[in-house]
């Protein structure tokens, strides 16, 4: 009897020893794989081979690691790209800022002379004002950019009526449209409600509307409508501008993107990006349809209900 117990005890000890050895081996291989992956990532390898076809815990970890690695890498690339663009733009802006300031100095010097007629004075003053406007615009753009960089777009969407938003933005765009003799049509059901942050959404819609005004020839027409789809309230801004080629639909929402043929226009290429960012943060989206030469329609989709 005691012999049996002895043998059973021995067998059990052997078994547990084997189990311990096996477990250690498991852990070592596991750690090795993990280290391999981390090493590859630290080395910044483009292609890392993982065992994602195996039914192992390690494989899951590898898949997740790779996912994160790719995402981080992409983000890094993106920010690198952004930074480069930003640098050029800042030097660009610096140049652009220099010109109005120089101009203003000149006008100021001229204004200090005594021999100017009132008309001349007024003319110089008007010139200066133009320069100030230009500075103002540049400053505005810079502020927006910094806001974007610091990420202070903090939307607080609430369920509210759409009509005040529409009216506000149309009013803002009114003067510049009038300047270009562009007709503005607003068609909005007063009952329409959606979930949005008024201040930021106004900026987004305003940006799109400003773009429309900017790229529509004098005497054109801009139609702003609002209606409701299955899930969204849709604000459409249609213009009779130059239109956007199909292949650029996704491009135009990218940061600092500017169409080749509109480079001479003022702007930094962040208006649409900002608009999309704002809308997206409210769980909406923007899409665009256009025919070159005929005009474009930008649609802003805002969640129709909470």
């Amino acid at each position: 009897m005691s012999n049996y117990l002895f043998y059973i005890g021995c067998a059990m000890i052997l078994c547990s020893l084997a189990a311990a050895v096996l477990l250690r081996w498991y852990l070592v291989t596991y750690t090795k794989r993990l280290l391999y992956c981390l090493d590859e990532m630290l080395a910044g390898k483009e292609y890392i081979e993982i065992e994602d076809e195996k039914e192992l815990l390690m494989a899951k970890v590898e898949v997740k690691l790779l996912q994160m690695y790719k995402l981080l890498k992409q983000q890094k690339q993106q920010s690198q790209k952004d930074k480069e663009i930003l640098e050029t733009i800042i030097s660009d802006i610096s140049h652009q800022v220099k010109t109005p300031i120089t101009n203003m100095r000149i006008y100021q010097g001229l204004l200090q002379r005594d021999d100017l007629s009132l008309d001349q004075c007024l003319e110089f003053m008007r010139q200066m004002e133009d320069q100030v406007d230009r500075l103002d615009y540049l400053m505005e753009a810079m502020i927006e950019m910094s806001r974007m960089e610091t990420g202070i777009i903090q939307v607080k969407p609430v369920y509210q009526s759409l009509i005040p938003l529409m009216e506000e933005t149309v009013c803002q765009a009114g003067p510049s449209a009038e300047e270009k003799q562009i007709q503005l049509h607003l068609d909005c059901d007063p009952q329409l409600k959606a979930v949005f942050d008024k201040k930021w959404t106004a900026e987004a819609v305003g940006n799109i509307l400003n773009n429309a005004v900017k790229y529509t020839r004098d005497g054109g027409k801009i139609v702003i409508t609002a209606d409701i789809t299955d899930f969204f309230v849709r604000i459409r801004v249609g213009d009779t501008g130059k239109g956007i080629p199909e292949e650029h639909y996704t491009e135009i929402f990218k940061r600092f993107y500017r169409e080749e043929d509109v480079q001479r226009e003022e702007g930094l290429g962040i208006g649409l990006f900002l608009a999309q960012e704002i809308v997206r943060r409210q769980k909406g989206y923007i899409d665009v349809k256009s025919q070159v030469g005929q005009g474009s329609v930008f649609s802003i989709y805002l969640p129709a209900e909470v």
């Binding site: 994602d52 076809e53 195996k54 039914e55 494989a59 899951k60 898949v63």
Partner: peptide, 14 residues
């Protein structure tokens, strides 16, 4: 080149 079993796991993850 994957076996059926591997392919299924691969598919599930990717």
């Amino acid at each position: 080149k994957m076996k059926d079993e591997q392919l299924c796991v691969f598919r599930r993850r990717n």
